[in-house]
Write a protein that binds this DNA or RNA. Structure first.
Lengths: 207, 207
DNA sequence: CCCGAAGCTGAGCAAGCGCTTAGGGCCTGT
DNA sequence: ACAGGCCCTAAGCGCTTGCTCAGCTTCGGG
């Protein structure tokens, strides 16, 4: 009984944001930022989508920029978590890379509204907030670079330029958030599988 | 003598924009839009960068959105021109794909300020203007898809999903505009060569 | 039964926005 | 010499923006 009233922090999107009014505002902001962009979205629009008055926003968030920062930080943490979990599941470097790419892409496609805000609105953050986010992004980079390096050492991969290829792989995955459309023909799972195959071809040593 | 006073439309960036004041304003707008984004840029900022008063903008452009449209249209035309020229140079599908990718990437890296505006500010256009631009983008898509199809037919490529791979190749190239940095270690030429190699690996049939 | 904290709203402020207008130099054709 | 068009500026209009604040309601603890 009591458990049913609690928010399921693990499975519900943005479950970690409380109280409920703060979460409703944040979800509304993600929607609006993804649709129009941060600078084109007004605080009145966000409050309106959440069914509240403009003033309500400032009870839960100090500024509009703090809202973006909360979204960006939680989003980056989730994306990084997805990537690290996938890369830690064991197997050959090839298997780990395929798992990492397909799940990272699934996240960017399935949660493309969040991903769009997270990946394309970094410039709107304050200097300190942006620095914090950039640190998280470096960890994503390290995960992919690590897998590539291991594959090269074992001879399974042939990658002349590991940092450059890391950049390309992450860039490919991230840009899914830009073009992915729910009305489109592909499901997040299909795009994930396609991209995992393409990336494996990019790095595999010729037989 | 007379020729020296004319603007070199072929070789100078934005040479086709006249008179000079209109070009100066447009160049300033590209700078500002690339740096801060369309919505975060004010008409006063654009005019200031061009060394003119805010009102001067409205002698040459009806609205701020028309300025973005001019930039977007010319930019897309130039990018498409680069892609079509490269793909038309002849050779095997592999050679044409390598040429297309490396020159398209060189454009996105070398002119990354323009490319950033062109690729990431589409949402700010009016419906009619956006429709015009989308038509140009479909032609880019057709160029890459055509090369892939030819390579598959000749047996040089092994591409199970031609539309999906076309999307991935273009996405990879376009996203260069987001991350490329002049202060970074790589030149546009280096990134172009790296990406051409990666894309060839993605589509080539195993020997 | 009352008290204070917490959550929310209606009204509105100061600042900045896109854009307009009146007016003045300057170049060109007659 | 001078009329007429072209560029440009100073000033500012009407509106929207992010954000604030006084006051109302709700609710758990003593």
């Amino acid at each position: 009984m009591a458990a049913a009233e609690e928010t399921d922090c693990e499975n519900v999107p943005w479950g970690e944001v409380t109280p409920e009014a703060a979460r409703k505002l944040l979800v509304a902001a993600v929607e609006a930022f993804a649709e129009r962009g941060y600078h084109a979205t007004t605080t009145r629009d966000i409050a309106g989508r959440a069914g509240m008055s403009p003033a309500a926003l400032y009870i839960h968030y100090k500024t509009k920029e703090e809202l973006l920062h909360r979204i960006s930080r939680i989003g980056h943490e989730r994306a990084l978590e997805v990537l690290e979990t996938a890369s830690g599941r064991g197997g050959t470097p090839g298997e780990r890379l395929a798992e990492a790419v397909s799940s990272f892409v699934r996240w960017h496609a399935g949660r493309h509204d969040t991903a769009r805000v997270v990946q394309y609105e970094l410039d709107a953050l304050s200097d300190e907030h942006r620095a914090e986010i950039v640190a998280l992004r470096r960890r994503s980079d390290a995960v992919v670079r690590g897998i590539l390096r291991e594959g090269v050492e074992s001879g399974e991969f042939d990658v002349p330029d590991v940092p450059g290829t890391t950049l390309a792989v992450l860039s490919l995955c991230i840009d899914v958030a830009r073009w992915f459309n729910v009305q489109g023909r592909r499901t997040p799972e299909e795009v994930g599988a396609l991209y995992a195959d393409l990336v494996l071809r990019m790095v595999s040593a010729r037989r």
